[in-house]
Write a protein that binds this DNA or RNA. Structure first.
Length: 347
DNA sequence: GTGAAAAGATTTGCCCTGCC
DNA sequence: GGCAGGGCAAATCTTTTCAC
């Protein structure tokens, strides 16, 4: 690197790099000034400052134009390299190559969501991002917001009504609902579940950080309904074993119940009333809104999880008929459309 | 070789903007 | 409000070119 008097470092204007490179290219003060959109005299003034800083004439007027001194030739080569790095590293749009990346995607979701999202997501990554790693965490609202703001969490998937501050963007994936989970051979099997039977039977309830449970509790409260809670647990994962061994009911997000039912121990019943629905969304912080890596991750989630790819729709139709599904898929017309806030450029 | 003309670089004075 | 830095237009200077 060309050396400049250390005492003058603070005075060095990086625009002078453009001056020296352009003059090196054009060998004419007039043409170089025009190329940079400066007046000829302004360019001359800048060149004079550079000469003073370097203690070298840098360019000498000759019959063939402004000829660089040996020092100027070295300086032009170095400055050209620096400007190229600035153009690429500062101004350039970084690419993201999923096929070769060894990045670690950090996702936030409730345990109940992991069994819904992760199987399909990881199967997709095996093909399209085979060297990537995925880390899943479950965090309460406050720490989750902090983790997203610090870049520790790339994306939150699920129902997160608290992630609505200005700093966050969200994209609706699909709208979801609830179902009632019972053991195979349950006394209620084969008959339509009535509201009276639903309220009289004992329930297993999950009081986890998954906000969808809280949402359902509020729904019951608004309707003046009160379940007989026999068991309250923190985890969804123990539910299948508990339900299989007892006559308890458990109301869970439909996809979760359907996944447990696929494993064979339990079955699903439709709720005896029009169940509430909630939006399953992807949330991200504005810091990563334009980040190529994060954009790729979001686009994969959007493609994998939306109304059109909702693999539980047949089960939902079987439990509640086509009417509920038609009603809730009509309202948000655009499939998995990014929230309006996400379309706004962050300032 | 010389002098005039042209082209281009430098200097000067002024204005504008940002900072303290 | 004063100061410093950068840019502009105009004036000035320097160098080159070319005709004689």
């Amino acid at each position: 690197m060309e050396t400049i008097d250390k005492s003058l470092d603070a005075a060095f204007d990086l625009n002078l790099l453009r001056v020296v490179v352009t003059l090196g290219n054009t060998r004419s003060v007039t043409h170089a000034a025009a190329a940079l959109g400066m007046s000829q005299s302004g360019f001359s003034s800048a060149l004079a400052r550079l000469r003073q800083l370097c203690g070298d004439p840098l360019f000498v007027r000759t019959a063939s134009g402004m000829s660089p001194t040996p020092r100027a030739e070295r300086m032009v080569a170095t400055a050209r390299s620096v400007l190229a790095q600035v153009a690429e590293g500062v101004l350039g749009q970084p690419e993201f190559d999923a096929a070769t990346t060894r990045t670690e995607f950090r996702l936030a979701m409730a345990d109940v969501a992991e069994i819904v999202f992760l199987p399909r997501l990881l199967r997709h990554f095996q093909v399209h991002a085979p060297h990537a790693r995925v880390v899943c965490v479950t965090l309460p609202n406050g720490p989750l917001q902090q983790a997203m703001a610090s870049g520790e969490i790339d994306l939150a998937l699920g129902y997160f009504p608290d992630l609505n501050a200005q700093s966050f963007f969200r994209q609706r994936l699909y709208v979801h609902t609830y179902a009632c989970m019972v053991r195979k051979g349950h006394p209620l099997e084969g008959s339509r579940l009535t509201q009276k039977a639903y309220l009289n039977h004992g329930h297993a309830d999950v009081a986890s950080p998954a906000r969808s449970n809280e949402f359902f509790d509020k729904f019951l409260t608004r309707r003046g309904l009160q379940r007989r809670i026999v068991l309250s647990t923190q985890h969804h994962m123990s539910l299948p074993a508990i339900i299989e061994a007892t006559d308890l009911l458990a109301t869970v997000p439909l996809a979760t119940g359907a996944r447990f039912a696929q494993l064979g121990a339990v079955q699903l019943l439709g709720l005896p009333f029009q169940p509430p629905t909630f939006a399953v969304q992807a949330h991200w912080h504005r810091l990563v809104h334009h980040d190529a890596r994060n954009r790729w991750l979001r686009s994969q989630c959007s493609d994998l999880f939306n109304d059109a790819t909702d693999e539980w729709r047949d089960i939902e139709t079987a439990l509640y008929g086509a009417a509920l599904r038609a009603r809730r898929t009509q309202a948000p017309k655009a499939k998995a459309k990014t929230d309006r806030r996400a379309q706004k450029q962050p300032s």
